[in-house]
């Protein structure tokens, strides 16, 4: 039984301009101790998906799914109170902007110990010991003195380490990291990524790593889901995805990696942007930007076609049409 099992999840927001479907019928499964990468451009619904799993969708959003199980428990039927017992304990999250994700009015120690106070039955002294331990684990020097620091006294990398310490404080079984390195310096990015992977391995927790950086996925994930405009367009083990992408969007994302463009005068890009609320095309959602578009793609919505080793949402997958990805 997978740890997280989601079938046909949709998230809709009612806005002034009408209903906007940010996530459109996606399936996700994560096994115990597995690393799943979710990639896609900004606006492809990656973050909304993770917020839906956390139960943090705002009031104007509506979450529907055929199945939404965590460890065999149906998340859809839990009361808000029961749901909160899971959130922050068994399922935890690290966000994109470490500098603004910590509350500026409270000390680092308070913010870490707060989770422990809510979820674990620990005394004051015990919580403090645990907080120091956690800061040590995420590689913060002089952890004891850092407890009384305020967030504005920390650098971006330090803040993200604190966020990670907070997230793992109650030994979660699933950690969702939403673009955890995007806001950081390149030199720090690698350190934070390594830290996340080390913690994942040591603790055997499952990790969903959300990113728009194919390079990050290549280094970390065993399995990858590619999202586009709220849909999963391709599922595949990481190795196969990089060597034999099936969906033209995946191919285009890989082509846009600088290391694959050596010898070219210009870095290949994908023209246009992800469709928003007003300009959703008919048929395949990627068709206006696709280099291999056919008439059928403009007419008919595309289901996810299973193939050997994965699935792709395309009538004319790259290998079959002979389209060249690299």
């Amino acid at each position: 039984m997978p740890l997280l099992d989601i079938r046909n999840l949709s998230v809709e927001f009612s806005t002034r301009a009408g209903t906007f479907r940010a996530v459109d019928g996606i399936d996700l499964t994560v096994d115990e101790g597995e690393v799943l990468g979710i990639v896609g451009e900004s606006g492809s619904g990656k973050s909304v998906t993770s917020l839906a799993v956390m139960g943090l969708i705002a009031n104007n959003g509506r979450v529907v799914a055929d199945r939404m199980d965590f460890d065999g428990r149906d998340l859809r039927t839990l009361s808000e109170r029961q749901r909160r017992k899971l959130t922050g304990k068994d399922v935890a999250m690290v966000f994109q902007e470490p500098m603004t994700s910590l509350n500026p009015c409270f000390t680092v120690g308070f913010q870490i110990m707060e989770s422990l106070k809510v979820h674990e039955n620990m005394g004051r002294a015990q919580r403090k010991r645990r907080a120091i331990e956690l800061l040590e684990q995420v590689g913060i020097p002089a952890p004891e003195s850092r407890l009384s620091s305020f967030p504005h006294q920390l650098s971006g990398g330090m803040s993200q380490r604190v966020m990670i310490a907070m997230a793992i404080s109650c030994n979660p079984r699933l950690l969702i990291a939403d673009e955890p390195t995007t806001a950081l310096d390149v030199t720090i990015q690698k350190q934070i990524l390594d830290l996340l992977l080390d913690l994942q391995k040591d603790r055997g927790m499952a990790l969903i790593l959300i990113t728009h950086d194919m390079g990050v996925v290549a280094e970390t994930a065993r399995r990858v889901s590619v999202m586009y405009a709220g849909q999963v367009v391709e599922n595949r083990p990481a190795r196969d995805l990089f060597t034999h992408p099936q969906h033209p969007y995946t191919g285009a994302l890989l082509d846009a990696l600088p290391e694959r463009a050596i010898g070219k005068r210009r870095l290949p890009t994908i023209p246009g942007v992800v469709p928003g609320i007003a300009d959703r095309p008919r048929g395949c959602l990627f068709n206006p930007r696709c280099g291999f578009v056919q008439d059928k793609c403009r007419r008919e919505a595309v289901p996810l076609f299973p193939d050997d080793g994965g699935s792709a949402r395309c009538f004319y997958p790259l290998q079959v049409t002979g389209g060249v990805a690299a």
């Binding site: 922050g88 304990k89 999250m93 966000f95 603004t100 994700s101 509350n103 707060e114 809510v118 979820h119």
Partner: peptide
């Protein structure tokens, strides 16, 4: 963002 963080703690 930090309000989202607080909610993500299950408060």
């Amino acid at each position: 963002d930090y309000i989202r963080t607080a909610r993500a703690k299950g408060l």
